[in-house]
C-alpha cells in the first residue's frame, strides 16, 4: 500500500499527488514512469514520474482524468492508499552532452515534460520550453516551467492565454530564425508529437519523443506496448516500457501508434460512463 501524502487539483481535470514509495524515489530519474492500480480490482495504468524526493521517500504524479481508471484514482483522498505502485520503469531521458534544448509539451504531456526541463536546467543546459494548452482554464505548472526554463513560450489553441495557436508555430519560427538546438524533445498527444517531428525535420536537429502506448506489466512481458521504428526502410519492433518511453522521433511509425492507441476505445468509453454513473449514485460501497 502506498500512501497519498498530498493531493492538489491543478485544473478541472488535472490532479497532482505525492505518494509515499521510498524504493521508487530512491531510483527515479526524469523520463521514467510508474505503473499503479488505485484499487485492488483496478486496471494497471502507467504515469510519468513528475518529481521525486529521496529524503521524504515520495514520488509526484500528475494525471489527467480521462477515463475510468483515472477517475477512480481521483476518488482517493489525501491519507488514502494506492493499492499497487511499481517503478521506476523505462529508461531515463538521455541528457548527456546536451547544452541547448527545446522542450515541447502539450496538455497533460506538460506534466511529463516538466521534470525533463528541470533536469536539463539543473545540469546547466539552456532550456527553451514551449507549452501548449487548449485554453486558459487548462494551463498547469506555469510557475514551475518558468523556474526551469531560460525561455518559456505559452500557447493556447483559442488564444485565451499566451499566444494563439499550437506549439509548432513558435518552434518553426525559432528554428527558421536560426536558433540551433542540440535536441528537441516533444511530449504530448501522439498527433502533436508527429507534427513536431515534421516541423523539425528540415532543420536536421535530433528529436526525441516520449511514447505513451497502452501498457500492462511495464517490464517487457506482455508486448502490448510495442511500436515500430522504421530505420532505412526496415521495420523494427520495440517495447516502449523497456526500450523507451523515449524514442528517436524520426524513426517512430506514428500512424501505427495512433491506431494502436485506439484499440480499446469502445471499452474505455463504456467503462467511463459506468464509473460516472456509479459516482453520481454516490459511490459504490
Amino acid at each position: 500500500m502506498y500512501k497519498i501524502l498530498n493531493k492538489k487539483v491543478l485544473n478541472n481535470t488535472v490532479i497532482e499527488m505525492e505518494v509515499f514509495a521510498p524504493l521508487v524515489a530512491e531510483k527515479a530519474k526524469p523520463g521514467q514512469f510508474i505503473i499503479l492500480r488505485s484499487h485492488e480490482d483496478s486496471e494497471r495504468i502507467p504515469l510519468t514520474i513528475a518529481g521525486y524526493d529521496i529524503d521524504k521517500g515520495t514520488i509526484k504524479i500528475i494525471f489527467q482524468i480521462v477515463g475510468a481508471s483515472t477517475l477512480r484514482l481521483n476518488e482517493l483522498k489525501e491519507g488514502d492508499n494506492i493499492h499497487d505502485f511499481v517503478g521506476p520503469l523505462g529508461l531515463p531521458t538521455h541528457t548527456e552532452g546536451i547544452k541547448k534544448v527545446c522542450v515541447v509539451g502539450g496538455g497533460v504531456g506538460c506534466a511529463i515534460a516538466l521534470p525533463i526541463a528541470e533536469e536539463f536546467h539543473t545540469l546547466g543546459a539552456n532550456v527553451t520550453s514551449i507549452v501548449g494548452f487548449r485554453n486558459k482554464e487548462l494551463v498547469i505548472l506555469e510557475d514551475e516551467f518558468k523556474n526551469a526554463s531560460d525561455t518559456l513560450i505559452m500557447m493556447t489553441d483559442d488564444g485565451s492565454y499566451g499566444e494563439k495557436g499550437n506549439v509548432t508555430i513558435p518552434l518553426k519560427n525559432l528554428l527558421e530564425s536560426g536558433v540551433k538546438y542540440d535536441m528537441v524533445i516533444a511530449i504530448g498527444p501522439l498527433v502533436m508529437m508527429k507534427y513536431v517531428v515534421e516541423t523539425v525535420r528540415p532543420f536536421n536537429i535530433p528529436v526525441t519523443v516520449s511514447m505513451n502506448p497502452i501498457m500492462i506489466d511495464g517490464t517487457g512481458m506482455c508486448g502490448c506496448c510495442r511500436l515500430s521504428l522504421i530505420k532505412e526502410n526496415k521495420r523494427e519492433m520495440k517495447f516502449a516500457c523497456v526500450d523507451g518511453p523515449d524514442f528517436n522521433g524520426y524513426e517512430v511509425d506514428f500512424d501505427e501508434a495512433i491506431q494502436r492507441s485506439k484499440q480499446y476505445s469502445d471499452f474505455e468509453r463504456k467503462a467511463y460512463d459506468k464509473e460516472c454513473n456509479l459516482l453520481a449514485k454516490g459511490g459504490k460501497n
Binding site: 508486448g223 510495442r226 485506439k262 484499440q263
Partner: peptide
C-alpha cells in the same frame, strides 16, 4: 502492429 494482434502473454 495491427489492432487485433496480440502476444499470448498479453
Amino acid at each position: 502492429g495491427l489492432k487485433g494482434v496480440f502476444s499470448a502473454n498479453e
